[in-house]
């Protein structure tokens, strides 16, 4: 229980940052977003945070199993990017993909059930945490083969291009993906065919235990875009409004037929690579604590202070807390995956 304590900063329980001094509010531009849309974005971010905390606790309690990759601290990126998308646009993701699924609109109950290996999960228990799919929400797959999500999105963008569909494919990738040869092939292909794709690299500072700056001399991943003749943008991945602004520009550019964009969202991975990771072997606890002062949820609250009523945010928090409890209960009460389905669905 104590493992997750303090991770859900809320208006009623002050965020970590408030205990150790304030973080300057940098994101104060709303990019024309209405109050309703601001609240939606907040809801997405808060849902991701609360989901990760709840599932982590459930995992520690033994309710679910298998590798668990938390996206805590990175909530602003899926929330900001997906706010710029339509339901029929598609998103591909990585091993750290719960937040992407949630932001794209997938339902919490079937996501939870998939993590818990239940028959009611999106994939009937065949996928698990690293393979959530909800085609009806345009969430068309995660690839824990580092870099793989970029190709799935590029192929989807190729489909849209061939059919003349005005749709966009977004690939979320991690900084580790940049080391894969396929990253180069993917960006080049999307660029030469001017495909309606957006590549969002969540640079959370670590590829498992490797610091990003140990594995690449060029610290700015976005600058690689120049090599492919496409725009590259660096954004503060903690600031949802910066993320949204960059995504909106990239998505509109893609939709207009002007080709792909590479967005690098700089952020910090609050948790280890996976639950149970031996983090002490490669990073100092104080580094994590320091980074957590820069909480995307807190940054949002600071930014909207004076524009939105705190009560509205608190109302959203309460509603989300209940939704996630309901989703966890749905998973827990769902039947286990049926062994009779194990041999079905390959061909």
């Amino acid at each position: 229980m104590t493992e997750g304590a303090g991770l859900i900063s809320s208006v009623t329980s002050p965020p970590v940052a408030d205990r150790g001094g304030s973080t300057p509010a940098r994101g104060t531009k709303f990019h024309g977003l209405s109050d309703a849309r601001l609240l939606e974005i907040f809801k997405t971010m808060y849902t991701i945070r609360r989901f990760e905390v709840t599932m982590e606790r459930a995992h520690l309690a033994g309710d679910l199993y298998g590798p668990f990759h938390s996206s805590m601290g990175q909530e602003a990126i899926p929330a900001g990017v997906c706010a710029a998308l339509r339901t029929s646009d598609v998103v591909t993701s990585t091993h750290r993909g719960h937040g992407h699924a949630i932001a794209k609109g997938a339902e919490l109950g079937p996501i939870c059930a998939e993590l818990w290996g239940r028959a009611t999960g999106y994939c009937g228990g065949k996928g698990g945490s690293m393979h959530i799919v909800s085609t009806e929400h345009g969430f068309i797959g995660q690839s824990p083969i580092i870099g793989g999500s970029g190709l799935l999105a590029t192929g989807a963008a190729l489909s849209f291009d061939l059919r003349g569909d005005p749709l966009v494919a977004v690939a979320f990738l991690g900084d580790g993906a940049v080391g894969q040869g396929v990253f180069h092939e993917t960006l080049n292909l999307a660029a030469i065919w001017r495909l309606p794709a957006v590549f969002v690299v969540e640079n959370n500072g670590y590829a498992h235990s490797f610091r990003a700056d140990e594995m690449q001399l060029n610290p700015d991943i976005a600058s690689r875009a120049e090599g492919y003749g496409i725009p590259g943008v660096v954004v503060d991945g903690i600031d949802v409004f910066s993320v949204y602004a960059a995504a909106e520009t990239a998505v509109e550019r893609a939709r207009a037929g002007d080709g792909p964009t590479l967005i690098e969202a700089k952020c910090y991975r609050w948790r280890g690579h996976n639950l149970g990771d031996a983090e002490h072997l490669y990073r100092d606890r104080r580094e994590v604590e320091e980074a957590r002062r820069n909480d995307p949820l807190h940054r949002f609250r600071q930014a909207v202070s004076g524009r939105l009523e705190l009560a509205a945010l608190a109302g959203i928090e309460a509603a989300v807390d209940k939704e996630i409890d309901d989703a966890a209960r749905f998973a827990a009460e769902s039947p286990f995956a049926d062994p009779r389905t194990a041999l079905e669905g390959s061909f």
């Binding site: 799935l152 192929g155 190729l158």
Partner: peptide, 10 residues
């Protein structure tokens, strides 16, 4: 890989 992405999207 792009072939797979195109195939899963119709």
């Amino acid at each position: 890989g792009a072939g797979v992405g195109a195939a899963v999207t119709g």
